[in-house]
């Protein structure tokens, strides 16, 4: 009959989710600036899919639509997935990804707040396992592209697969720096040779990508300043990458990329500030968050260096999602006055 407290602070899940989206905007802008219009189309397409799929799932589970569509969590998932996919990914790739993200990873586990795994990362993992070819056709940075696609041409490519006449696929897509690195290493080239031979490498990270990473960092810092995300996860995640990559680079500079290069990838920054910080699937204790972040950073580099896929952020975070209950159980902070008891 009573529900204390009788007064509530202003704030809601919707506000949290909208702030996350707002803080992603710098990254999106940088993305458009460096890689063209494709990402905007895919963000919109993913958002539409997310809301439609969410509505469908809610209807099937006889949950009310309005409060759960308005909470914004589906759109956040959509953006995170779209930003992880190649900017010119075909429409059906996003569809399959969102189907798994919203349908399987979120609603089969009980919907908002109940999922064990980050939905966007489940969608990403399913896609990279099922469609490795499409997933590595990254849009070339505009500065390297022979002829940038216009908005209409991007739309046509994403939904029709057709390119303007006279333009080959190689003109619009290229491998990511991480992918280039991996292929080169498989061909027994040294790091130095690969970087000298390819033009996708920028001053710190990849051409274009390093700007996007910097924008994610900026947005992420705002998110932290607003106390939406705790400092522990991003800091530990980046530290995990830096330390692991640093050790490998120190051990064999010819094979393993420098730590700054690893951190300056868009996926690392997006993962650190926006994906690993997902409260639902992350650790909740301060020490637990440090362990969670460090583990995810460590696994990211390990997978990049020794795994079968060029990037490891998604798998690293999913693996750490799995460990969350254990981490939380063993990192409970002492309660007020607990120290004096013993």
């Amino acid at each position: 009959m009573t529900a204390s407290a009788h007064i509530l602070q202003k704030g809601s899940v919707t506000r949290v989710m909208l702030l996350v989206l707002a803080c992603l905007l710098p990254g999106v802008l940088a993305y458009v600036w460096q890689f063209g219009w494709g990402i905007v189309i895919n963000l919109a397409w993913a958002s539409i899919l997310a809301l439609a799929l969410e509505a469908l799932a809610l209807r099937l589970r006889s949950y009310p639509l309005k409060p759960f569509l308005a909470d914004g969590s589906a759109v956040v998932t959509a953006w995170l997935l779209a930003l992880s996919l190649p900017p010119l990914a075909p429409w059906w790739l996003t569809l399959v990804g969102m189907l798994f993200a919203i349908g399987v990873a979120k609603h089969l586990y009980g919907g908002l707040g109940q999922n064990i795994f980050n939905p966007a990362m489940i969608g990403f993992a399913v896609l990279i396992i099922s469609f490795p070819a499409q997933m590595t056709q990254w849009a070339a940075p505009l500065s390297l592209a022979a002829q940038p696609l216009t908005f209409g041409e991007s739309l046509g490519f994403i939904f029709g697969g057709g390119l303007p006449p006279g333009l080959g696929l190689d003109a619009v897509v290229s491998a990511t720096p991480l992918d280039t690195l991996r292929t080169g290493l498989l061909q027994q080239h040294t790091l130095h040779e690969i970087q000298a031979a390819s033009h996708v490498f920028g001053s710190v990270g990849g051409v274009g990508g390093e700007w996007v990473a910097a924008a994610y960092l900026a947005g992420g810092l705002i998110l932290w300043a607003l106390r939406i995300v705790p400092w522990q996860v991003p800091a530990a995640f980046l530290a995990g990458i830096w330390l692991t990559a640093g050790f490998l680079h120190w051990a064999d500079a010819g094979r393993y990329a420098a730590p700054w290069f690893q951190i300056a990838t868009p996926s690392a920054m997006l993962g650190a500030f926006f994906i690993a910080t997902d409260p639902v699937t992350g650790a909740t204790t301060p020490r637990g968050r440090l362990i969670f972040g460090l583990g995810a950073g460590f696994l990211t580099v390990i997978i990049r260096a020794f795994g079968g896929y060029p990037d490891g952020v998604a798998f690293a975070i999913l693996l750490m999602n799995l460990c969350v209950p254990l981490i939380d159980a063993y990192t409970q902070p002492p309660v007020f006055g607990a120290a004096k008891k013993k």
């Binding site: 704030g11 899940v13 409060p67 909470d71 908002l112 707040g113 705790p230 409260p279 639902v280």
Partner: peptide, 8 residues
């Protein structure tokens, strides 16, 4: 709404 473990 469900708890999203935001830990506020």
């Amino acid at each position: 709404l469900p708890c999203i473990r935001c830990t506020q």
